[in-house]
């Protein structure tokens, strides 16, 4: 049976008095790979932050059936201080700062796991470098390792390919496909061309949420939801017309 990890029911969220998401429904099941697309300001990041419990919801409910520390998260921006004295290895280990680890010290197993991840991301030679000395792509790889160190059951990636070079982007999607055999992945991106060939299903967020049980995007669909269509790289757009949505 496909285990349900997250159930978002009729959720409405906003900031101050402005409504950003309006009665949104979505389920995340084990081994899902959901691509979240939509225009800037459409509420993609808001949706993710609400799943993580970082912002209060106005109406509805979000049931999260796994421990919060079992959600791996790669944030969109890097809001941290680049001059902060912390090494790559320590940043990755900080992915373990869930509740049970306050009195539990970092042990050998954690360090070994960190090493495996650093090798996989190709940043093992940078392990003791300070985070501020890294390039944007290297920081992104480090943060991806941080999201994976807690062995998450759900991985949430907010614009993971920002700053990442095209070579690592390929490796990244291979890595994600491998991970997806075990865990669910939600990936936010406005690069529709890249996203649609790797994800299994697509959620389009623009105030409302439209869910498609397929990774095919049609031009009609995009126009209908006012989603951005500037980056479609598939060559021929498959003409698959879905039933119209009632708003």
């Amino acid at each position: 049976m496909n285990k349900q990890l997250v159930n978002i029911k009729n959720v409405t969220i906003g900031y101050q008095s402005k409504k950003v998401l309006d009665s949104v429904n979505m389920q995340v099941n084990k081994t899902d790979f959901i691509g979240v697309i939509g225009p800037n300001g459409g509420g993609k990041t808001t949706l993710i932050k609400s799943i993580l419990g970082l912002i209060p919801i106005w109406e509805g409910s979000i049931d999260v059936n796994i421990r919060k520390s079992k959600i791996g998260y790669l944030p969109q921006f890097n809001p941290f201080d680049k001059a902060f004295p912390i090494s790559v290895e320590e940043v990755i280990l900080s992915g373990l700062s869930g509740k049970k680890h306050l009195f539990k010290r970092v042990n050998k197993t954690d360090k070994e796991h960190t090493e495996v991840l650093m090798k996989q991301a190709g940043i093992i030679h940078l392990r003791s470098k300070a985070i501020g000395q890294l390039s944007g792509g290297q920081i992104q790889r480090t943060l991806l390792c941080r999201a994976l160190i807690s062995k998450p059951e759900l991985l949430i990636l907010d614009e993971p390919s920002t700053f990442v070079d095209s070579q690592f982007e390929g490796e990244l999607f291979e890595w994600l496909a491998e991970l997806n055999k075990q865990i669910a992945i939600i990936m936010v991106s406005h690069d529709i061309g890249t996203i649609s060939s790797h994800v299994k299903t697509i959620a389009c967020v623009n105030g409302h949420l439209h869910y498609h049980k397929s990774n095919k995007i049609t031009a009609e669909q995009l126009a209908h939801y006012e989603c951005p269509i500037q980056i479609i790289t598939h060559g021929e757009v498959p003409h698959q017309v879905l039933a119209t949505h009632k708003h």
Partner: peptide, 8 residues
């Protein structure tokens, strides 16, 4: 923010 998301 990340620590908060992890419920630290």
């Amino acid at each position: 923010n990340f620590a908060k998301a992890q419920k630290a």
